[in-house]
Design a binder for these strands. Structure first.
Lengths: 150, 150
DNA sequence: CTTGAAATCACATGGGA
DNA sequence: TCCCATGTGATTTCAAG
């Protein structure tokens, strides 16, 4: 299950993780290979799923989603089949969904425009997944989405 | 604090959030502007901090960081000045740091190679920030880093 | 915002260690 | 298999209106 990444591929992955728009030309210089060699490696990393995608990180405040929260889920019926992620997938306010070890079963990271938006979101989560929720409101985000510690 | 984003800028931000390597040419087609107009807008969004950066999303399993955890922090000395984020910034395993409302003060999202790596990380967090920790291990990640609900 | 032109880049192909 | 060199068309970027 997953060969440890070769040093060159690791360097490429690290660079693209830190700057997702680095050109192949720059990458080639940094890892000491020709542009075409790097090009091939990046495509392979994408195919293998080492690179899952590219995204611009946006400032929640400025895009109208200033309220972030962590929501922990507990199933209402512990005997029900565990298809919670599927039941929640359609809710676009949910950015991430983690299955966790602990008192609760899942933790969601969500972004909403306002307290009213959060209230409505919680209602939809409870209805869609038949869970009870415990919400931790994020007051501020000192940092987020930093480069991986490769 | 933060003028609501103009529709065209919002469309650009949404597209780059969903695909961080979309070319200016593609962006221009999608939003119905010339390439250089889009170019200027993207630069402005970057300057304003609406776009905070670009990153490749990597598969933790394949890059040697298969273990994810959420760590909640409680200050040892509640009277101490609150400079925890600064004290933790140097620890590269910490991907995100949220100041939260609730029993605890902060929640960290971390990635490590192994349980031993987690143990060592917890020790460093406690020492650096003078906090006690409560750790929630992530068992699996049904989804993560989905595009913002713009 | 647009046009337009120069510099740079992406990417496919073919060939060599 | 992995790498490199080269060519062509696409893209980025800047200056000017």
């Amino acid at each position: 299950m997953s060969v440890p990444l070769e040093p060159t591929d690791q360097a490429i992955a690290r660079e693209l993780n830190a700057n997702g728009r680095t050109s192949f030309t720059d990458l080639a210089e940094r890892v000491g290979l020709s542009v075409s060699a790097v090009h091939q490696r990046v495509r392979r990393l994408e195919q293998r799923g080492v690179i899952k995608g590219y995204t611009a990180r946006l400032d929640g405040e400025q895009i109208g989603l200033p309220l972030t929260a962590l929501i922990s889920l507990t199933p209402n019926d512990p005997a029900a089949p565990d298809d919670y992620p599927q039941r929640l997938e359609h809710i676009r306010e949910i950015e991430s969904c983690y299955s966790v070890a602990g008192d609760e079963s899942y933790v969601l990271l969500v972004r909403v425009p306002s307290p009213a938006g959060l209230e409505d979101l919680l209602r939809r989560i409870r209805e869609s997944a038949k869970v009870s929720t415990r919400t931790t409101v994020v007051l501020s985000t000192p940092f987020e989405g930093r480069p991986a510690a490769l």
